[in-house]
Design a protein around this nucleic acid. Sequence first.
DNA 1: CGGAAGATTGAAAATCATCAATACTCGTGG
DNA 2: CCACGAGTATTGATGATTTTCAATCTTCCG
Lengths: 240, 240
Amino acid sequence: MLDMRLKKLARQEVSCRDCALHRICLPAQLPASEVHILEHAVERNRVLAAGASLTHAGRRVQALYVLRNGSAKCSWISADGEESVRGFYLPGELIGLESLAERRHACDVLALEPTNYCRIPIARFEMLLDMLPGLRREVVRSLSLSLEASSRLVTRLVSTSARTRLAGFLLDLSRRLERRGLVSQEFELSMSRRDIARHLGLTVETVSRGLTAFKRAGWLLVRGRQIGIRDPGALSALSN
Amino acid sequence: MLDMRLKKLARQEVSCRDCALHRICLPAQLPASEVHILEHAVERNRVLAAGASLTHAGRRVQALYVLRNGSAKCSWISADGEESVRGFYLPGELIGLESLAERRHACDVLALEPTNYCRIPIARFEMLLDMLPGLRREVVRSLSLSLEASSRLVTRLVSTSARTRLAGFLLDLSRRLERRGLVSQEFELSMSRRDIARHLGLTVETVSRGLTAFKRAGWLLVRGRQIGIRDPGALSALSN
DNA sequence: CGGAAGATTGAAAATCATCAATACTCGTGG
DNA sequence: CCACGAGTATTGATGATTTTCAATCTTCCG
């Protein structure tokens, strides 16, 4: 018994159920029996230094990933050398699903801060997919949700005004943090202004000016990367 | 034998294999045995007048759809009454997958021209999903591809210049038509300039000016909604 | 033919990008 | 501990692009 405990401590966790993310992560809706099988396929406690990358665009997909803490950006360098940032990953969000069909990663995923993550080798995952009906449903669900999130992002990007896009971005981030049980009104941006700009199709300067405008309006507290949302209603009214 | 033929004619087709889209549609990569089962669940030969809608945002998902000809737009009316166009569906593209998780449609889908389509009731589809491993793989693949397409759209929208977005839109449309074995250099836009504008986050006027600019540059033939691509290379260079 | 919706074009105003200068932050080494 | 420097962020001035407003033209359908 004690032996078990020590082993558990040494490897931090053995089970997905002990994980802080068990309410959000892939196993959340899975029957216990399937979780038990799935977690044997998961390589836990992997670490990534800030700036290190998880995937490279064009490389073969070897595994799926889930961050346990920290955050990552998903970006792509186009032919002319410009970087476009497709999005940011928060803990519990499954990484790599969109590359399942093509078998090659569509973008670089790069840690924005020191990060722990889980890794699931793709071959074992696909095997399990054929075995576990619950996992299957969860994957379809997860893909479906990603697609919806992507659609929302499109809606946000289509809004012509820079302020609107910025407000939408901040609110989306806030909502995703809230879902993770984190403080959603006060948080620290892990990404640079440049990353936000590249993500929203704006320039660094416009992002910066937008933030100070929100600050002056009393809607936001901004100190460097520390953000406090003071008037979500006003931001929401803008973003719609 | 003759009886069978007549019946077939009367209902146009009974099998997915007889369909003109069999190379692109969902059953394309499916083993024959599974196609056989799937096609019993498909309601064929349904029609939709131009302007009629297939789904309404917020309504429960009853079925998935695939257009057989014609085209549709996927749009969403935001709180302030503004319409944002998430995208356009061409024949063979599965409609409704992104709403699978939420069980409610995320947007309105509306026919842009007189359209025939297939309908698959969602309950039967989900039952088949548990029975047919090939179908499962195809659905995951299809979702994964949609997600990738959505990512590409994001990349396009993030490009700051209006011309760039417009060029990317036209090339994407051309590629999708080509994949369907249709003429990809000469085609008719089924959507209005307003729809294109709402889709790209621009105004009608900017879209119009962009098209005439491309025309003057000799890259495009434009006569109303009739488009001829003369210099795909130039457009492609712009869109990257 | 006439009317309505869609599309184009022009001129003005607003927004955003670009260029440039300055300030802040953080980690490193003196 | 302070200074330095690189990377990051803010701010200002200018110019380009895009929106907005308005007028005209085209197309399509009853």
